[in-house]
Design a binder for these strands. Structure first.
Lengths: 199, 199, 199, 199
DNA sequence: GATGAATGAGTATTCATTCAT
DNA sequence: GATGAATGAATACTCATTCAT
C-alpha cells in the first residue's frame, strides 16, 4: 500500500498528527500537511495512495505498537488483577505520552466517514481481542465471576477506558491520566459498591 | 434560535433523521432533507438558522425527553440499586425503540465537526448530571463505596452504557438491548468479580 | 440529459463556442465559460451534467440542424448533379456563416479524448448517411458510374469537403468557401481529368 | 533540437509509438514511455527537449521517409496516371505495413493541442508539395483539365486518401488498403461519373 | 551519460445559503 | 409564508520536468 522506506513517510505521518490536532480534521488539507512536513504536495503521493491512506497509515503506525506494547506487558504479569492493572496503566500511559495523538484518535478521527472508520476499527479489533483474553482467563481462574458475560465485560472495560481518556482529552489534559489507574482498576473489579482493599 | 411553531418544524426534523439514517451523515444534503420533508430548500431556513441548527435541534428534540423520561422513572424508585436499574433500562429501552434514531445519535452524528459535537455534548450534560446525582446519592446512602471517585464512577457508567448501545447498533440491532439491563446493572454494581445475588 | 429550458442553456453553449475558439480547447476552463456566459460556475451544473456534456450538447445543438438543413435542401432538387451541388453549398455555407463555430468543430473539438470524440462521431453519422443516399441514388439513376464503390465514393466526397473546410479554417477564413461550390462539384463529378461542361 | 546519436533515441521513439497505440494519446505519460523504452524518466530529457519533442520527432522519424519513398517511386513513372497510381499505392502500402503507427498518426496524434498539430503539419507540407507537383505536371501535360484549381485538386486528393486511411484504421484494419488503389485512382481521375476504362 | 525522487502548478465539481418573485 | 434558481468558495490529485548523486 504505502511505501515505508525513507524518512519522509514518518515526517508526513507526524505532520498529519500535528496538523489535525492543531487545525481539526476538517481543516487538515493535504497541502497543509505537506507544508508542515516540509515537502511538496506531490511528494505526499509518492508515499501514500491518497489522503485517506495517510489517515489509515497514521492510525496503524501510531496505534499498531499500542496493542503489542500492552500485550507484552500483560504477559509479564501473573495474576488477573495485575494483568488488568497493566492493561489500564498501559492504555493511559501510551495516550498520555502524546497529547496531540490522543486528540487525533479520541476526537478528530471519529469525524471521518464510515468507510475510513471501518478501516480504523479493524486496527482496534486486535486490542479488543486482548481484552477478551483477559476476561476469559479471569473467568477460568475464578477471579472473575463465573457467570460473567464476556462481551458485556469487554464493553464495560473498553467503554470505561475510552470514556475516561475522552474526558481527559476534552479537559485538555489538565489532570493526570496514569494516576487514575488503580482507582479505575478497583472500580472495574468490584464495581460501584466494591470494597477498596488497598485504600 | 429555531422557531418551533408549525408542523413543518417537526416534519423537517423527522426527515433529517430518516435521510441521515438512510444515506449516512455525509450524504445528508439540505436539499435531500427538504425533499423528504416535502418542502422547498429555502423553507428549511424559515425554521432553522442553518444546517447545523437542524442537527442540534434534532438532538435536542429527540433526546430532550430522554433525560426527563429517565429522570421521572428514577425518582419513582427508592433504593439506589433500583434507581440504577431504571437508569439502564430506560437508556436501553428508549434507544431500542427507534433504531433509526439510535443509528443517527450513536454513529452518524459523531462524524460531525467539533463545534457541532460540542453543542451536542451540551445536551448530553443534563443526562450526565442525572447520573452524577445517583452516584452522589449512592455514596451518601452507603450503597456505593465511600471512597468512590464520583467523576470516574460517572465515566464508567456512561462509558459502559454508550459502548453497549454502540455495539448493539453496529450489530444492526440483532440482539435485545433491554434484556441486558440486569446483567449490566450487576456488573456496574459489583464489577468483574462481583457476586450475582439475584441469579 | 441536459435541461434545455431557459435562455441560460443557450447562453452557456454560445459562451463555450466563443471561449474555445478564442482560447483553444485546452484553455477552455469551466470557470472561463461561466464568466463569458455571465453566470456563476455552479450555474453551469444546473444545465449540464459535466464539462463533457457542455461540449457534446454544443455539437448536437449547433450541428444537429446541419444535417436537417442539408437534407431539406437536397430533397428539393431533382437531378443528382443539383443534389450534390446543394450538399456542397449547404456544407460550405453553414460553416462559413459562423467562423468561430467552424474553428471549434474543425480543429479544437478534434483534440478531445476518445470517448468524447466517439459521442461526436455519432452526430456525424447522420450526415454520412445523407451522402450515402445521394451516392446510391446517383448509381441507380445512371448519373454515377455503375461500378462505383459506394463506401469509397462517400469517403471521397466527405474527405474532400472536410479537407477544403479545414484548409479554409486554417487560412483563417481568408477566402470564400461558398464560391468554391461549383468547382468542387465539377471535381467530384468528373475528377481531375473531367470536362467542365458548365464553364 | 533532439540529439539523434545513440540507440536510445530510437528506442524511445519506438516505445512512444507502442505506448500511444496501446494506451491512447491521453494515457501516454512520459514515465510510461520511459518504462517501455527501458530507461529512466530523466534519460528521456537527454535525447528530447520535452514531451512534445518526442511526438514531433516520432512523426518526423517515422513519416520522414514516407515522402522520400513516395517521391522516388513517382519519379520512376512516366505517365501522370501511373504517377498518381503510385502515389496512392505507396500511401496505402506504407501505412498498411505498420498498423500501430497508422493508429498513432491517423487518430491519436490528432488529439494533441494546436501548437503540436501545427508542427506536425509542417512535416506534412513536404508531402503536399509532392501532390502539388503531380497536379501541376498533369495540367501541363494535358492529362488533367486545363482549368483545374491546383489547391482544390490537392485537397481532393489528400482529403480522399486521408479519409480512406482513417476509415481503414477505425475499422481496425479489417479490409485491405492497397487493394483499393486502382479504384481510388479511377475515382480521382474521372470522378463519380467517370467511365472506368480499365475494368 | 544515467538515474529517479522530488517538485508544484493547475481545475472540475459540490452544496449550504440567499433572495427575487 | 413559500419557493427554487442562482450563487461561489473550497480542494485532492496528476504528471512533465529538474537536478543532486
Amino acid at each position: 500500500m504505502s511505501k515505508r522506506k525513507g524518512q519522509k513517510f514518518d515526517k508526513i505521518i507526524d505532520a498529519a498528527v500535528l496538523v489535525i490536532a492543531k487545525h481539526g480534521f476538517h481543516q487538515a488539507q493535504v497541502s497543509k500537511i505537506a507544508k508542515e512536513a516540509g515537502v511538496a504536495d506531490g511528494t505526499i503521493y509518492l508515499y501514500f495512495k491518497n489522503k485517506e491512506d495517510i489517515l489509515i497509515s497514521l492510525f496503524q503506525e501510531k496505534m499498531g505498537s499500542f496493542v503489542e506494547t500492552s500485550n507484552l506487558k500483560i504477559k509479564q504479569e501473573k495474576t488477573i488483577e495485575d494483568k488488568l492493572n497493566v492493561l489500564i496503566s498501559s492504555h493511559f500511559a501510551q495516550l498520555e505520552r502524546d497529547y496531540h495523538l490522543a486528540v487525533v484518535t479520541q476526537l478528530e478521527l471519529r469525524q471521518s466517514k464510515v468507510e475510513l472508520r471501518q478501516r480504523i476499527n479493524q486496527v482496534l479489533k486486535g486490542y479488543l481481542l486482548l481484552i477478551d483474553e483477559i476476561v476469559q482467563e479471569g473467568k477460568k481462574s475464578g477471579t472473575f465471576h463465573v457467570d460473567l458475560d464476556p462481551l458485556l465485560a469487554r464493553q464495560m472495560i473498553f467503554g470505561t477506558l475510552d470514556e475516561v481518556v475522552s474526558n481527559w482529552v476534552m479537559s485538555e489534559g489538565k489532570f493526570s491520566l496514569t494516576n487514575q489507574t488503580n482507582t479505575v482498576q478497583e472500580m472495574l473489579l468490584h464495581g460501584l459498591t466494591g470494597k477498596k482493599e488497598r485504600g
